[in-house]
Design a protein around this nucleic acid. Structure first.
Lengths: 124, 124
DNA sequence: ACAATGCATTGAAGATTGTCAATGTATTTG
DNA sequence: CAAATACATTGACAATCTTCAATGCATTGT
């Protein structure tokens, strides 16, 4: 190792301009993890969806869309829209009985979501 | 109390049309609480902001904007934009030293936010 | 004073989200 | 079958969010 010819090249490059922070540190939260957590949070981050989840959690298995519509300050298509989002995410599901659709929470999926969210934001 | 004249009026009104759910129940989560929780979640629900919070939490008091910009897949104005949002919410703050701005987490505010979020979604 | 640097702000453009009237689809009831 | 009911879907619109080039503003080094 003949390092006698190049004494302090790396040092000059670093010290030129007096850098603010020496460490180039990638975030411990990876881009993928951040995206996943962001998706989870985004799904919850709407007052109507939160109230829907709240109502479905309280009244196990007996909530039809007309009940939700009556209790929420939005019209029926909007309720259906948010129900569809929650259903696509696997958080809720429904069972049609004749003319009505009874929605219910998928407790395991909701617990898994809650575990991911709580676990990740604990590290912040 | 002369209830002899009106025997089953209320019953007929209820049973007409065979309602889906008898109970009209307001959500336990009030509209105000839902809005507050939604705001908290919305602030966190972005991968860049999550990674910023993560970096600031790890490296106490020595993170300048150029570091964030180097570690994140967005340009400098975008970094400044997200920093401004987090700062307006009181989650972070900065201290200018000469040419650089060192950002840091307000641990108490972040803890309060985390407590609100965890406390509320525990009830879902 | 001048050039360079770090960061904030502005303004514009595109993407996403939220809402609802109108309409469609089943199902029940008369 | 026809009317009524519960819900889903479509399509359009407005509002909000996200991003970045351009620019502005201090501060530092020459």
């Amino acid at each position: 190792m003949n390092n006698t010819t190049v004494p302090t090249i790396e040092l000059t490059e670093r010290s030129r301009g007096s850098r603010c922070c020496a460490n180039d540190s990638a975030p411990r939260l990876s881009a993928e993890a951040a995206q996943q957590l962001s998706d989870d949070l985004q799904l919850l981050a709407h007052p109507i969806r939160l109230q829907i989840l709240d109502m479905l959690t309280r009244r196990e298995g007996q909530v039809c869309v007309c009940d939700l519509e009556a209790a929420l300050p939005v019209k029926q298509p909007t309720v259906s829209h948010h129900l569809k989002l929650l259903r696509a995410a696997g958080l809720i599901d429904c069972e049609r009985q004749g003319l009505w659709a009874y929605y219910f929470v998928r407790r395991d999926a909701l617990a898994a979501l809650r575990a991911r969210v709580v676990g990740q934001i604990a590290g912040l």
